[in-house]
Design a protein around this nucleic acid. Structure first.
Length: 696
DNA sequence: GTGCGAGTATGA
DNA sequence: CATACTCGCACC
């Protein structure tokens, strides 16, 4: 070909009146669309330019979802900008079509997704996949027909004459919390305070949900919007109940996968167009396109549901932290317990702690009793051989006269119940008739009720000594306990049968952690039964996680002034102590102190490289360690394959440890390396995952 | 993934 | 010397 090919194509692209047959003229102004292609290939995760044909000019707005020919195939992407100048030295392909003219990728969202991708050494388009709901054609039509009405949705609409002063409701929700009034006032005044809220209740007027709802109401007084993220549907229901009280049902939208594509997309567009300015939902709601954002809030950040399950495995807390930094808005992290990450925010002074005062807490929280406590055991020598620990038994019995009683049991699989290998008769404790279970890693089965070890168990039916694991979820436990407490209505909540609310006064509610229904008046008592089994899990995170589950259950129980009592049965007194004292902040501070000394997360950041040993070696070949960056491994992972194929090398994992300060540098380098290797298509690709809490 | 150009093998 | 084919890599 004789002449310069770029020259030729540019002339064509810019629409000289007479074009080659088949090419349509380009748009008159800003004929170039910068498009972010949706791909999970790291080296292609960037912006490419296309010519906008005149026919697509009107629809091809920044933020629109489009299709474009890329490489061999037509791929989808989003227009990030329209510009006038084409890049030098490339010939531009035309945009194939505009899928939807709704500008779903806003500037702000692109900036956020980019920051998240950088933080996690991942792809921008992977982040966007979680952030932008699937398009629904009929919803597009609704919005196309609707006259553009960027209503100022501010303090005028629902609140009528403005928000009813530092409302009575807000005062009640935050009673006992020093500094709360100031925090709310700052929100209302348009400032951007950042706080870590130590909620103590999960029901009633002073619940975390009420507290968060009032924070949202305050920020709305300043005319700004808010985003609230919660781990699951049950928490969302609690929050929505309060928001309806405080704001009104039409003043917010929910964004959650559970609603299905149509309402989710509709709500997304309503936010996008400023029809509503408050978004609540599960983890993907962190990206909600709220206009004029004033507050991001997160409830219970320790819940692992907030961790995205797809690459780059981002956590809603980090997303919201990045977002609040970018938009300079207020931030609120609420929880009954406190995660290590949030403790860092308090420790560094980034956020202030909103904590109820000691004397207030003493009255407002239930009494906590540890039956495994040596002091208790001395006073109650019957304990080891009683049926349920005596104290637990009595707490339940007496509690049932005053209200519902919660029994928290470990999830199925944590401590599978045992039955006879030969005749399938359920294995029972010879002392108390409770179910036997394999708890943790100890070989000897133990009674789940009294904890007694069943050494040398013999089946009462056939005399066999062999035991097999059988599934005993909350359902089975409920059955067992129902027999133990005749007269009580036994309710079970776990797995896919989660109940949000329990109304019955004399219900014995058996629930797994995270599935506990709310009792509107509070539980009279709670028994936290499987502490030892839960604590036996081998993970760096275990104590924090178990404590979190206990605190959440305990926050559902009436205060001690109304007879509320929590009985916990666990041997590790160091873990139980903060619960007994109701001191989540102290527990988090101590745990973080330990982590800092050991240089373990979340005091430092980590990245895990997973893949074939050869792949990891290639990845690390000219990767510079230094500064705070150190590497551990690689170690071979226990293979999940039933049979390792000969010649096929197994998966390995290398861990990188680095400081938060060096984080951006390290993740940028990881990302760069990933892209370079992917472009070269070196064999044995390596998966990079940052700050996976379940890795250690 | 796929199309394309460079480079190389192959046959007339 | 012309044509067939593979390989690598850019992809707007």
């Amino acid at each position: 070909m004789g002449s310069d090919p770029h020259q030729l194509s540019l002339l064509q692209g810019f629409g000289t009146p007479k074009n080659a047959p088949g090419t349509s003229p380009a748009a008159a102004t800003n004929p170039v669309a910068q498009v972010l292609i949706e791909t999970s290939l790291p080296h292609l995760d960037r912006i490419f330019d296309y010519v906008v044909p005149e026919a697509l000019d009107a629809e091809a707005v920044p933020g629109a979802r489009v299709k474009a020919r890329f490489g061999g195939q037509e791929m989808s992407g989003f227009i990030t900008r329209r510009t006038s100048n084409a890049p030098e030295g490339v010939k531009l392909a035309p945009l194939a079509k505009v899928v939807s003219a709704q500008p779903v990728l806003t500037d702000e969202l692109l900036r956020l997704a980019t920051a998240v991708a950088e933080r996690y050494a991942g792809n921008v388009s992977d982040v966007l996949r979680a952030a932008i709901p699937a398009r629904v054609a009929k919803v597009d039509k609704e919005f196309a027909a609707r006259p553009e009405q960027p209503v100022a949705p501010d303090a005028t609409s629902a609140d009528g004459a403005g928000y009813p002063e530092p409302s009575a409701g807000a005062a009640e929700a935050y009673a006992g919390y020093e500094g709360a009034g100031d925090f709310l006032a700052q929100l209302a005044a348009g400032a951007a305070p950042r706080a870590v809220l130590a909620s103590h209740k999960s029901y009633g007027r002073a619940s975390w949900a009420a507290q968060v709802a009032h924070a949202v109401a305050s920020v709305r007084q300043s005319g700004r919007g808010a985003v609230v993220v919660v781990p699951d549907a049950k928490d969302l229901a609690s929050l929505e109940a309060e928001l309806q009280q405080v704001l009104g049902a039409d003043q917010y939208v929910r964004l959650t996968a559970e609603d299905g594509p149509t309402p989710r997309y509709r709500n997304y567009l309503r936010l996008l167009h400023g029809e509503v300015t408050v978004a609540v939902g599960t983890r993907s709601a962190a990206y909600a396109p709220v206009q004029d954002l004033g507050l991001v809030a997160l409830w219970d950040d320790g819940d692992d549901l907030l961790l995205e399950q797809r690459s780059p495995y981002q956590h809603a807390r980090e997303v919201l932290l990045l977002r609040s930094a970018q938009s300079g808005c207020a931030a609120l992290f609420a929880g009954v317990s406190r995660s290590g990450e949030v403790e860092r925010l308090v420790g560094s002074g980034w956020a202030s702690a909103l904590t109820p005062s000691r004397p207030f807490l003493r009255k407002a929280t239930p009494r906590i009793l540890n039956t495994a406590d040596s002091f208790q055991q001395e006073r109650d020598p019957m304990l080891r051989h009683a049926r349920l620990p005596h104290a637990a038994w009595r707490a339940a019995q007496e509690g049932l006269e005053r209200g519902p009683v919660l029994v928290q049991v470990a999830r199925t699989g944590f401590s599978p119940a045992l039955s006879c290998q030969d005749c399938r008769t359920p294995a029972r404790c010879t002392d108390c008739n409770g179910p036997l279970a394999q708890s943790g890693r100890t070989a000897t089965p133990a009674c789940r009720w009294c904890g007694r070890l069943a050494t040398n168990y013999a089946c009462p039916e056939c005399g066999s000594h062999r035991l097999r694991a059988s599934v005993a979820g909350a359902l089975r436990t409920a059955e067992e306990l129902g027999r133990a407490f005749p007269g009580a209505t036994v309710v079970s909540s776990s797995g896919d049968h989660i109940k949000s609310v329990v109304e019955s006064k004399n219900a014995l509610v058996v629930a797994t952690p995270g599935a506990e229904p709310v009792a509107p008046e509070g539980y009279a008592a709670a028994l936290l039964l499987d502490g030892n089994a839960m604590l036996s899990r081998e993970s760096l995170r275990t104590p924090e996680d178990v404590l979190r589950k206990w605190f959440r259950a305990a926050s559902l129980v009436k205060p001690s002034s109304e007879g509320g009592l929590v009985v916990v049965t666990a041997d590790q007194e160091a873990v139980v102590a903060p619960l007994v004292r109701w001191d989540p902040a102290g527990a988090a501070a101590r745990e973080m102190q330990l982590r800092r000394e050991l240089q373990l997360p979340p005091a430092v950041r980590i990245a895990a490289l997973t893949g074939k040993a050869s792949g990891i070696e290639a990845f690390m070949a000219d990767f510079e360690l230094g500064g705070s960056l150190r590497s551990v491994g690689p170690v071979e992972l226990p293979s999940r394959e039933v049979q390792e194929r000969p010649g096929e090398s197994s998966e390995h994992r290398l861990l990188l440890f680095f400081s938060y300060q060096d984080g951006p540098k390290v993740t940028a380098a990881l990302r760069h390396r990933k892209a370079a290797l992917a472009a070269k298509r070196v064999p044995d690709p390596v998966q990079v995952r940052c700050d996976g809490i379940d890795l250690l």
